[in-house]
Design a protein around this nucleic acid. Sequence first.
DNA 1: GGGTACCTGAAA
DNA 2: TTTCAGGTACCC
Length: 280
Amino acid sequence: MPELPEVETVARQLAPLLAGRVLRRIDVRGPLLEVADRHLARGRRVLGVTRLGKQVAIALGPAGRGTAACRLICHLRMTGRLIWLGPGETRGNPRHVRATLRFDGGRLLFIDPRRFGTLRMESADAPVGNSGTDPMDGRFTPPVLAGLLGGSRQGLKPWLLRQDRLLGIGNIYASEILFAARLDPRRAAGSLSRGEIRRMFGAVRSVLARAIRHCGTTFSDFGDTRGRPGGFGRLLAVYGREGLPCRGCGRSVRRIVQQSRSTFYCERCQGPRRAGMFVA
DNA sequence: GGGTACCTGAAA
DNA sequence: TTTCAGGTACCC
């Protein structure tokens, strides 16, 4: 589930649950986190929980005099989930628990069936990886987007998945953003006009912001005792809607494959502009 | 650039 | 049984 809106939701929900708590111990199953790093985490207080790209960052204070602050970075990849359990609380017998972070007054379960997810410890001043621009950051503007698109000949949809350009966009929101921007996913990323870049900028912001407001597209709770999916799923315009009528024009939504991954779009709404073209 | 691999489970 | 899945590292 985790693209930017889902990870943002997780971080926002975790922040008030974890802030101020002391991390007592981390138990792992498998090679998720080195013994030395697990030891390093003990006894530290949580300063905050934020999103870094698609990752959840748990900032930890120093462990004593002369020690530096650090942070735990969790990447959920495809199937990772973070579930908070208060004192004595249980959730049946959860399968695929890869790590348990034990705090005063509760524990955080890292559940990940496919085991693609990662957990690592780094120093608080480590540079944020992959160097892409966060599209929800105020420094992201249409000229910045224009610079990132540069002269790229890559298709727009594969381009949107690149974490060294924009952070946090994945396969669902890439299709949704291009539908909102009325841009063909196969267009070369570097071929957009200034007006099209403005449209794309607006779509990136509005689609992600709306998905965040609806707590993402699908995922089970945590913090909340009931399993509750994100509310954005029913608002998807094209993703997962192959053959269904486009919400804009009614024509059936197409699915194509780009770089071995599904792309959904509407040929009419995202086709070449007709205005200004010669008519036969 | 694009294809494949990583791993498991759900759905076709 | 086969295919597909919200991510990304690594191969040519």
